[in-house]
Simulated scan of single mutants.
Amino acid sequence: MSEEDQPRLFSNRWADAVGPGGDEPARDRCHCLDRRGEHSGKQVGFHPDRQDTSAPGWLHLLQLIDEAAADGREVFKPLVELSPGERRQIVTLPSAIAELTAVRHLVLYGSNLVRVPPEIGAMTSLEEFSPYTSYRLHWLPYEITRCAGLRESTVSTRALYGNVKYRPPFPLLRRADEWALAAVEPHRWGAEAIRSCSVCDGPLEDGRLRQVWISLVVATDVLPLLVNACSAECVAALPAPAEGYVTTPHRGGPDIGRPARY
């Protein structure tokens, strides 16, 4: 066999990002988005999952975050330390990720995440974000744009709202007058708590929340970002969306995923 006929071998760059196996599933299945592109009139919504903060996986993750913050590590791959059952218990990340100011690469390969908290914006050293094959993660918080050094991302973009391949719709966002600080539900607002403005970081009051979607280039991917704004002025201060996507911030709904010029 000539050298040209030799089969090519490709290295698995995620070999060290996969946690231990077992009999339990490590994540739930998701059927939110139609990958055939047949989205006309289809409503989608936020995942309703609430984080069980008494679950062993959550408590283990808190411990790992404490250890990473204490030793100042630059690469954080918490899921490799969790059993499949523990990984399945994690549907969001703790707000304590704000303490990981030395982390340059956050690896969340194959997670069961349905959302990422706005505290990711406090990870000021973050340069690479890798939630690859996290198929239930359809959007990110606008606060991720505060990670000024973020240059690389590996995201399963076909699982994202409004992605360029299938153009699935976005969840329809609610009006400001429906919002109350003490009654935040994940299936209605995409979070279990919303405390501050994504744009100016100011406090939020009852009836003042203005939620919009915007698609922006973040590192190497176009991501659908959820903005929790305190005012129309903060919405107006948002940057221009990525070329080829919805041209203005919007409230979502079944007809929004596909720009008029597409």
Rank of each mutant, 00 (worst) to 15 (best):
P241Y: 09
C230S: 02
W139S: 01
W14R: 08
A159S: 15
L126V: 01
R115K: 07
V91M: 01
V155A: 07
S134W: 04
I256R: 14
A102F: 05
R88W: 05
R210S: 02
A229I: 12
C234T: 06
V80T: 15
E38W: 04
K77E: 15
T220I: 10
E74T: 13
P25Y: 05
R104I: 04
E99R: 15
D23F: 10
Y166R: 07
P117Y: 01
C32H: 08
S125K: 06
E178N: 06
L225Q: 02
S111F: 09
T133P: 01
V103S: 00
G72E: 05
H60L: 10
V91W: 00
L223M: 10
V222T: 13
G21C: 00
F129G: 02
L33H: 07
G22H: 11
P224T: 13
A26T: 09
R175M: 05
H60F: 08
G45E: 14
P171Y: 00
D5H: 11
L100A: 04
V91T: 09
E81S: 10
P168W: 06
L150S: 01
V155C: 05
V75C: 10
G207M: 12
W189C: 01
W179R: 03
P56Y: 08
P203S: 06
E3I: 11
V44W: 09
S198N: 06
A122F: 15
A159H: 05
R27P: 08
V217A: 14
C234W: 02
H39A: 09
Y245T: 14
